[in-house]
């Protein structure tokens, strides 16, 4: 018998806990389609009213950078400390800007 989860699609679940906040990744689940994924997500992740809005996205539709590539992906920023406010030393009386 094949495992049923092998036939079902994997979905990633994002929940907005409160109006005004971003949707945040909370986990994943298997479902037949988007509609079912949304219902499962409600049952799995918002049983205690943790959210006001849920997004479900097929995991296979997510394109992500690889942790292993992090060095060459981000190192162009590492030598630019001047992008940070703290880089600039100002006289005390005006240092609150």
């Amino acid at each position: 018998m094949t495992n049923i989860t092998e036939k079902l699609e994997l979905f990633e679940v994002f929940v907005r806990s409160k109006r005004g906040l971003d949707h945040k990744h909370v986990g994943s689940l298997h479902a037949e389609d988007h509609e079912q994924a949304l219902e499962y997500a409600r049952d799995c992740y918002t049983r205690r009213s943790e959210g006001v809005s849920i997004w479900v996205v097929k995991s296979s539709d997510i394109c992500s950078s690889q942790e292993d590539d992090a060095d060459c992906f981000y190192d162009p920023s590492d030598d630019k400390p001047y992008r940070h406010a703290t880089y600039y030393v100002l006289p005390d009386p005006v240092n609150n800007m």
């Binding site: 001047y82 940070h84 406010a85 600039y88 100002l90 800007m97």
Partner: peptide, 9 residues
């Protein structure tokens, strides 16, 4: 914030 601080500097 860096924008204003670099200008002032």
């Amino acid at each position: 914030s860096f924008h204003q601080r670099q200008g002032y500097e």
